[in-house]
């Protein structure tokens, strides 16, 4: 039956020769934010291009324009024999759960989403332990702060972003139990990912309350945070990709979320991809913080060794960083 579908599908698109794929090329579907968002989706694109450059392979990608296209793109890629079909963003959880059963020979990957592995054995759900990476940059922030007040600017107010904030607050309190932590969200709808002006206003408001280190987890809005921090002489902390180079001397570090590695690994595994649930955390370098030529003089040796020790303790289980999404509460900060 599935073979029949594939033949039918291939015959139907035979008209356009460019459309037919050689068997088992990977495909990548970006969320509505688009490919070049300087953040999450672009990290996925970078991972895919790195794979293509190193292996000489080819991949297909698509930017969506409407909600109904989520399922459509998944189905069309599956019908054409692409595998694995990789998606970015938590909004793909429901569409993949709807589609995966119809294409048992295709492997689907959702980054940040979650699909029940028992009901859909051909889906890989990749989650990141953002709270662990945020804890480490929280420690760096707590040490660097002279005022004892650090702050967080989040994009859209969703549990995922609160998870960043919660880990960050815990890290700051670990090095300075009296630290004051301010957390603000830019908005409650997707425009919050792309509103650097409002992000900049929030940053100024937080600085007037004494904050001198600001962590941004806000997609493209985060650029407004980093720029304002640089202009006003405070420290900023970047997110997802390494953003240290943006404002040298002001960006203290970046919390890394290696979406690019996740995409690279999935494409490298190809048809042999192991499905199920994967958690990318400190132990497998899925999250971390960025240390490079731009910021190595900004973080002193004692801080670094404390952070590395904490990283080891988190991996061994001695330090437990609270994950906001487990119970929707955070002991370290009020929202």
């Amino acid at each position: 039956m599935t073979l029949m579908t594939k033949i039918l599908g291939a015959a139907a698109t035979g008209l356009a020769l460019t459309a037919t794929a050689s068997f088992a090329d990977p495909a990548l579907i970006y969320d509505l934010g688009g490919k070049f968002d300087k953040s999450f989706n672009e990290a996925a694109f970078n991972g895919a291009t790195r794979w293509a450059a190193e292996t000489g392979g080819e991949f297909k990608d698509i930017e969506l324009t409407s909600e109904a296209q989520r399922e459509q793109a998944l189905r069309r890629f599956a019908e054409q024999g692409f595998s694995p079909v990789i998606t970015t963003g938590f909004s793909f959880s429901t569409p993949i759960a709807n589609v995966a059963g119809d294409y048992p020979d295709t492997k689907f990957v959702t980054i940040d989403g979650w699909v029940d592995p028992d009901a859909n054995p051909n889906v890989l759900s990749i989650g990141f332990s953002e709270h662990e990476g945020s804890y480490l940059v929280g420690m760096i922030a707590g040490e660097a702060s002279e005022s004892g007040t650090v702050s967080f600017v989040g994009g859209m107010d969703i549990p995922l972003i609160r998870k960043f904030a919660c880990g960050f607050a815990q890290g700051a309190k670990a090095v300075n139990p009296d630290a004051k932590i301010i957390a603000n969200m830019i908005g409650t709808d997707p425009t919050a990912w792309n509103d650097p002006v409002k992000a900049s206003e929030l940053t100024k408001a937080q600085m007037s309350q004494g904050s001198d280190v600001i962590f941004a987890a806000a997609g493209a809005s985060g650029l407004g945070v980093l720029q304002t921090a640089a202009d006003e002489g405070a420290y900023g902390i970047g997110v997802d990709s390494n953003q240290n180079y943006l404002y040298p001397g002001s960006v203290l570090t970046s919390m890394l979320k290696r979406v690019d590695n996740a995409v690279y690994d999935a494409m490298s595994a190809g048809a042999d991809l192991e499905t199920g649930v994967q958690v990318k955390d400190l132990s497998n370098r899925g999250v971390g913080f960025a240390l490079d030529g731009y910021n190595e003089t900004m973080i002193d040796f004692d801080t670094l060794s404390a952070v590395y020790a904490a990283a080891g303790d988190i991996v061994s289980g001695e330090i437990e960083v609270h994950d906001y999404t487990v119970d929707n509460t955070c002991p370290a900060v009020e929202f």
Binding site: T13, A16, T18, A19, K60, I62, E63, L64, T65, S66, Q69, Q72, A73, R76, F77
Partner: peptide, 17 residues
């Protein structure tokens, strides 16, 4: 048709608009 173009060609989605 625009969705198909976006999927199988390198015509960017902005041009479909």
């Amino acid at each position: 048709g625009g969705a198909e173009l976006a999927m199988w060609t390198s015509i960017p989605r902005e041009l479909i608009v």
